[in-house]
């Protein structure tokens, strides 16, 4: 029982991290129907910056409140960095392709992902790099053999508020309304006076900011970064976004948690070697029975 609970805990924590990356996919997809293949590699660059900042500031020596404040600072800086980078890429690469065939931006996104990877290669070097353990590894759950450390807590503490903030942003603010309008019909949105390009840029910024925050959490939680980390990261997150119903914010979160749980439990009860395959097999089965994803809304056919 303890073993099962422990695996669930690990699965949910991993899943929360996946969910956070998935949000970046789902935001961008929701608004311009683009699978942003470069998102995982954007996060890799965010993690590069985080590692550089940690060593420049000498954060490994900080303790107590200073550490937590430092983490908040990292989240902010890396978020701004990734958000800004995402906006720049949108301006330079995707915006000229707004009216191009549907698959053209997809290929450009793959191109951007390759360029990011090359930058990461120069930044980090070819080998994996260790991200220092800034947070204490003490177990927060006393006794009972269950383990839940400050690192694990951090993931939850950052992911949940960000998710709530994002929902509020999209549901209630003016910008959020504009985003939803553009997502439904860009032409009509432009006709009612919405600056479509600015709204799209804002979406890229929000998605990038979440990615930047995720990159810091990733570094602190997994403790290893490398120039190739974007790929696997992106693969799971993208899958989570689709599983939950791509374009849906709660969907991305549910998708991420499901993937985390399935991965942990199949590693525990079937074997680590099959875990990756089981995640995708379950994805296929779910999509066969719910073609719009878990929380996605069915699209009406236009005749």
């Amino acid at each position: 029982m303890v073993f099962f609970l422990q695996q669930c805990l690990i699965g949910l924590t991993n899943g929360a991290l996946v969910a956070m990356v998935a949000l970046g996919y789902t935001m961008v997809y929701g608004i311009i129907r683009l699978i942003n293949f470069a998102h995982g590699d954007l996060i890799m660059l965010g993690a590069c910056l985080a590692l550089t900042l940690v060593s420049v500031l000498g954060m490994a020596a900080w303790t107590g409140t200073a550490t937590w404040l430092g983490v908040a600072l990292l989240v902010l800086l890396c978020g701004l960095f990734c958000g800004g980078l995402n906006v720049a890429v949108d301006r330079l690469v995707y915006r000229p392709l707004r009216n191009a065939p549907k698959l053209a931006p997809l290929v450009s996104a793959i191109g951007v992902s390759f360029i990011f990877m090359n930058l990461g290669l120069f930044w980090l070097g070819p080998a994996d790099r260790s991200f220092p353990e800034l947070l204490p590894a003490t177990n927060l759950l006393a006794g009972e053999g269950l383990q839940f450390t400050a690192k694990d807590l951090l993931v939850i503490v950052v992911v949940v508020p960000l998710m709530i903030a994002l929902s509020v942003l999209v549901k209630t603010t003016r910008l959020g309304k504009a985003m939803r309008a553009v997502s439904q019909d860009p032409t009509a949105a432009a006709l009612v006076g919405i600056d479509v390009d600015r709204v799209i840029a804002a979406t890229f910024f929000v998605g990038g900011f979440l990615g930047g925050a995720a990159s810091v959490i990733y570094g602190l939680y997994i403790n290893t970064i490398g120039f190739q980390m974007g790929f696997q990261n992106g693969l799971y997150a993208f899958t989570a976004a689709v599983l939950g119903g791509i374009g849906s914010i709660p969907g991305a979160v549910v998708g991420g948690l499901v993937i985390g749980l399935v991965r942990a439990l199949s590693s525990a009860y079937v074997g680590e070697r099959w875990a990756g395959a089981i995640v995708f097999a379950i994805l296929i089965v779910i999509l066969v029975f719910r073609p719009e994803g878990l929380l996605g809304r069915g699209t009406k056919e236009k005749v």
């Binding site: 690990i10 290893t224 991965r263 942990a264 525990a268 680590e272 070697r273 875990a275 990756g276």
Partner: peptide, 20 residues
């Protein structure tokens, strides 16, 4: 005796099994 996927990012669940 289990095999890992060299592309996986972390092995926390696996290590929970080893610990058990």
């Amino acid at each position: 005796h289990d095999s890992i996927d060299a592309k996986a990012q972390e092995f926390k669940s696996l290590m929970a099994s080893v610990k058990a």
